[in-house]
Design a protein around this nucleic acid. Structure first.
Length: 475
DNA sequence: TGGGGTTAT
DNA sequence: ATAACCC
């Protein structure tokens, strides 16, 4: 496999030719370190290291999955409910005033005909989500997931290969697929335009494949980095795509009316920026780098200020299989140990099925709680510990009582966090398996043969689901 | 605000 | 273990 044309090194944010004049280059050079001078070979065109990134964003994903499961739902206003929230809804419902994360009460009030389905069990969404990611990986293996319904793909190499197939006279007849942001005119003499147009064609093929093979519609954005691809994918909304040409980059980022709309700048950072009087993207662009660094540290400061210029050198990092599996449940009140134990056992049973199907083995378990607090302070606490090796071996081997020892471990973690002799009030419990390892990580050697668990044992493979009525199972 | 995920410190 | 970010 060839290397990607993406090096994680900082190059003073030169990867895009955002024409904005900045006096930050010197600061970047300093950050690169004095002793190891950065005398890279000079790239002649300045665009040789430019990437082509596509961001694919499925339309109201959970609602689409539900409509595929139950065709009766198509055409009706549909909301997907988790607890008392409508977490997402289809476009019929949106036309009638339903919004994402609206309470069920408000949604029903706005739209009495709204059909609701429960979406607390994410299993089918997760499965469909990975089918989409796997489909995208067929185009290029470099696919990064963002949540269940978004994927970034670095298609730089694919674009280069297609360009090499074209004769020079064919290059000037390349056309765009979908929208061009700002209706900017295309310059077929500009190689960066040509590359992005080819990218738009690949994006169209991806959306076609997702629709033909999985029945799902979505949007796509094509641009020179992840930030821009993501921002531009949302411009034309359902089931359309948009490409961003470099000359319109500043227009795109300034179309965000507030820095909180900038991906990568979250709730906390927004509050701190507002305290500094920074509200717009331009405020952040022109704010003193030194003061920003004092407030946020050099790492965050430089990253977010680059974002404000539309610069994002972060690579598309292949997600691969998940790093963790978790199941959670929220509720009004849990105030006894027995009640907690029962809920924990339920979460665990579902997790064991998932872990079993994955094939890898978790080496760490974590228990997470949320305590009731009248005011906001949305805060969680957790305790984790290694999973004993004899329990790990039993995971996925088909079977037998892994529930009991795991529940015991989790209840120890529980009592470590919650003083059960005192009154308590929890509103959430979550169990997480992480530190997943391929099989067992024993070193190769003569001894290894004896340490390798029997592979002849029937594993919980394929779609078979374990029944976990009690804390006890037969093989 | 749900029921998930990730990375950095 | 927590805190920040993403959906």
């Amino acid at each position: 496999m060839e290397k990607l044309g993406v090096e994680p090194e900082e190059e003073g944010g030169r990867e895009e030719e955002v024409a904005v004049v900045r006096s930050m280059e010197s600061a970047d050079a300093e950050a690169a370190g004095g002793s190891e001078a950065v005398h890279h070979e000079v790239v002649p065109t300045g665009s040789a290291s430019s990437r082509v990134i596509v961001h694919v964003d499925l339309d109201c994903f959970y609602a689409q999955v539900e409509m595929i499961s139950n065709l009766e739902l198509k055409g009706k206003p549909l909301g997907v409910q988790q607890k008392y929230l409508v977490v997402t809804c289809n476009y019929e419902a949106r036309k009638l005033g339903v919004k994402k994360l609206m309470s069920v009460r408000d949604a029903k009030e706005k739209c009495p005909q709204l059909v609701l389905v429960n979406g607390e069990d994410l299993t089918r969404y997760r499965e469909m989500s990975y089918k989409v990611t796997e489909l995208m990986e067929e185009f290029s293996p470099v696919v990064e997931r963002l949540g269940f319904d978004e994927n970034f793909v670095d298609i730089t190499e694919m674009v280069e290969k297609r360009l090499q197939q074209l004769q020079s006279d064919e290059r000037s007849s390349v056309t765009v697929s979908g929208h061009v942001y700002n209706d900017q005119s295309i310059n077929l003499h500009d190689i960066s335009h040509i590359r992005l147009l080819v990218g738009s064609q690949i994006a169209a093929e991806m959306r076609e494949a997702i629709y033909n093979q999985l029945g799902l519609t979505g949007c796509a954005g094509v641009a020179s980095n992840k930030l821009l691809a993501k921002l531009v994918s949302g411009i034309f909304k359902p089931n359309q795509q948009t490409v961003l040409l470099p000359e319109s980059c500043q227009d795109l980022i300034h179309s965000l009316n507030h820095i909180k709309k900038m991906p990568g700048i979250g709730y906390k950072t927004t509050k701190r920026l507002e305290a500094l009087g920074i509200n717009s993207v331009r405020d952040l662009q022109t704010f003193s780098s030194k003061i920003l660094e004092k407030e946020f540290g050099i790492s965050v400061a430089q990253r977010i200020q680059k974002l404000s210029f539309g610069e994002d050198n972060s690579p598309v990092t292949p997600s691969g299989p998940p790093q963790s599996f978790s199941e959670e449940d929220s509720f009004k009140k849990c105030s006894s140990e027995a009640e907690a134990k029962k809920k924990i056992a339920e979460l665990l049973a579902s997790l064991l099925n998932r872990v079993c199907q994955d094939g890898r083995k978790p080496h760490t378990v974590r228990l997470i709680i949320r305590r009731y607090s009248s005011e906001k302070h949305y805060s969680r606490e957790s305790r984790q510990c290694p999973i004993p090796s004899h329990v790990i071996q039993k995971l996925g081997t088909g079977n037998y009582d892994v529930m009991t020892p795991m529940v015991d471990i989790l209840m120890k973690l529980f009592r470590n966090m919650v003083n059960v002799k005192m009154p308590f009030h929890l509103t959430l419990l979550s169990v997480c398996f992480c530190n997943l390892k391929a099989l067992n990580t024993a070193k190769k050697g003569p001894i290894d043969y004896y340490l390798t668990p029997s592979l002849s044992t029937t594993k919980c493979s394929g779609k078979r689901s374990l029944k976990m009525k009690d804390t006890h199972m037969e093989d």
